[in-house]
């Protein structure tokens, strides 16, 4: 009896693992809170492709996942600007064939041919995020304009920061007027001092849903992604969004194919689907980042230009031949 059960289970197990091979699949890794579940489910239904959708909360986490998993585990990822170069150098990604995308022309040319991937050989822009400060004016009456204002001792335990080393250390560098991609030891030491002072005011580091902290009034100030700020403001109109005067980070997240993914054809179908106007609209309705679709821009051209002018991209930390990532990692461990 028992043996029969075991045999049955083994057969079940095998049939599970076999049947997987025959259904059409797509393995995606994307940022948390970036594509609504509904969009994925609609795509699955329309194309009869099962999307295995995993998430990550920082570019570093994505890099670790891709470089440690067996080749072909994932098909489509959404790394930010600087991470594309890092992945390219390590041979982790494949070139994109734009001719396979019928909706390619929906992309706003303003976001094409950027420094980090000059001819868009490897990537196409998906969504753009910026960092900004979200302030609950119910409880904070001071006029906060930049990072240095956050050091006010009255804000003890009242700030949420993104749990992202490049962004947070970058902001600390900017508070001194340095470039956020400055890797000199001296300036990083300044950034460390700044963050240690700031830490007394920090209640939590969170990249996945910092808006929750603002909405539930756990904190009154947040250094968050723009969409998180906008969503928090929708729940609580007293929340004010401020672009820090010392500068802020721009982050362009891109469609990128993982090297030798087993389902690259399905990945093209998915990219093409996401490039459709109505789908792009659904995405920014739920997560109001800056769309790269030229037909549905949620910002006026002047607004967009001013955002692009004052923000800066995070750059590849290994470009200067220095071991930047390790430096940042260690500094981050010291801060925490």
């Amino acid at each position: 009896m028992k043996r029969k059960i075991i045999l049955l289970l083994l057969i079940l197990l095998m049939s599970c693992s076999c049947s997987k091979e025959t259904t059409r699949e797509l393995n995606v890794l994307n940022w948390t809170s970036y594509i609504p579940d509904e969009v994925i489910h609609d795509f699955e239904k329309q194309y009869n492709i099962k999307v295995n959708y995993g998430t990550y909360s920082s570019n570093e986490e994505l890099l670790a996942k891709i470089s440690s998993s067996k080749e072909g585990t994932y098909d489509l990822i959404f790394p930010s600007d600087y991470m594309i170069e890092v992945m390219k150098q390590r041979g982790l990604i494949d070139k994109l064939d734009k001719s396979k995308l019928t909706n390619y022309s929906n992309i706003n040319p303003l976001f094409l041919n950027q420094e980090y991937d000059q001819y868009n050989e490897y990537s196409l822009p998906f969504l753009m995020a910026t960092t900004l400060l979200a302030i609950n004016t119910e409880n904070i009456h001071d006029n906060i304009t930049g990072y240095n204002d956050l050091l006010n001792p009255e804000y003890q335990n009242n700030i949420v920061l993104l749990d992202d080393q490049r962004i947070v250390i970058g902001a600390a560098l900017q508070s001194f007027g340095y470039n956020m991609n400055d890797f000199s030891d001296e300036h990083l030491e300044d950034a460390y001092e700044f963050l240690m002072n700031l830490k007394k005011n920090v209640k939590a580091f969170d990249s996945d849903s910092p808006k929750t902290f603002l909405i539930s009034k756990e904190v009154d100030i947040g250094l968050v992604w723009n969409a998180e700020g906008i969503l928090a403001r929708e729940e609580n109109p007293n929340i004010q969004l401020v672009y820090p005067k010392e500068g802020y980070a721009l982050s362009m997240d891109n469609y990128v194919l993982v090297k030798n993914g087993h389902n690259q054809d399905n990945a093209y179908l998915f990219i093409d689907y996401l490039l459709q106007d109505d789908v792009a609209q659904k995405i920014i309705d739920e997560y109001p980042y800056i769309s790269t679709n030229k037909n549905i821009s949620n910002l006026s051209d002047t607004e967009l230009n001013s955002i692009l002018k004052n923000g800066s991209y995070v750059t590849n930390s290994e470009i200067n031949g220095e071991n930047g990532i390790r430096k940042f990692d260690k500094l981050w461990a010291r801060i925490k």
Partner: peptide, 19 residues
């Protein structure tokens, strides 16, 4: 709140983010 690291977080980070 992601601001306190214990050994568990440290090991996890070495494997899953710091590589």
């Amino acid at each position: 709140g992601g601001k306190i690291m214990i050994v568990g977080n440290l090991i996890k980070n070495q494997f899953l983010t710091a590589r």
